[in-house]
Write a protein that binds this DNA or RNA. Structure first.
Lengths: 139, 139
DNA sequence: GCCCAAAGTTAGCCATGGCTAACTCCGGGT
DNA sequence: ACCCGGAGTTAGCCATGGCTAACTTTGGGC
């Protein structure tokens, strides 16, 4: 298998990586805003079980990348790009999780595995999962 | 969704990350040994499309972690732990890829997506996919 | 109105996994 | 025999995403 389709696959795997944290964060920020009106850094601290310092670093990167806006001691806001990414990530997440449940795995496992898997599911695979949810198994 | 099952999920996602590269490497090393008798660093350079220096760093980590043995200017050997991890990773990879094909996605997409997904598939989800391959779709 | 705890910030550290540049080693062809 | 190019090594850099420690800000309860 060495040197079969290697370059494109691994470069994509790497660039995917770069945006996984961003996707998780905007998703969590959108959830917090929806549920509590605003998103404070401490919400993210609790959600991801990391320190305040880490959340701060990450938010700075998100701001640099145009996904959120912040001001000192103020809640985090999503830009329109951030909102777009959030809703797209959430949809992907929901489809993957529902698909795993339909596959027959426990709710617990579906919740855990979908967190990891969602970032690696292409449009085509997502569509295939969606098809199963809408119209049942192939054949 | 913030603060629902948060800690365990995200800590697992992080520790998974740590071993993804290791799994990819032992898998590639096992493949090279199988196909060409030995695995040289240059095989990994080509496979992952990274530089020699990066391969060297990674091999040092793998050696530190007891997965491979090396000597200067000699091929890379897998330890028994390395072989175990390689065959387990390969099996997981094969099941995921075959499952995606059965789901109806193209061979190309199945190859690419399985690379990313394999590292996040739990025993339970893997078993569910295996069941579909062996005995067809649920119901 | 003050004061304390919670929230946020900042500085500085670490490992991972990338890179370039400059070097050394080794083996095959002339 | 040598020498040259490909393979391997080493040093040093960078971004990401973690951390601790020390600090400041903010706001709610007394």
């Amino acid at each position: 298998m060495v040197a079969k389709l290697p370059i494109k696959i691994h470069q994509r795997t790497r660039s995917d990586h770069a945006s996984e944290v961003a996707e998780d964060y905007v998703e969590a920020i959108a959830d917090a805003i929806e549920q509590r009106g605003v998103c404070r850094a401490v919400d993210l601290v609790k959600h991801f079980a990391v320190t305040h310092a880490t959340v701060n670093n990450t938010i700075k990167r998100l701001e640099r990348d145009g996904l959120v806006t912040t001001a000192p001691y103020q809640p985090v806001e999503l830009t329109s790009a951030g909102r777009r990414l959030a809703s797209q990530s959430r949809r992907r997440h929901e489809v993957v999780e529902a698909f795993l449940k339909k596959l027959g795995v426990s709710d617990q496992t579906a919740a855990v595995d979908s967190e990891g898997i969602e970032h690696h599911v292409s449009k085509e695979t997502l569509a295939a999962m969606k098809r199963v949810l809408d119209r049942g198994w192939p054949q």
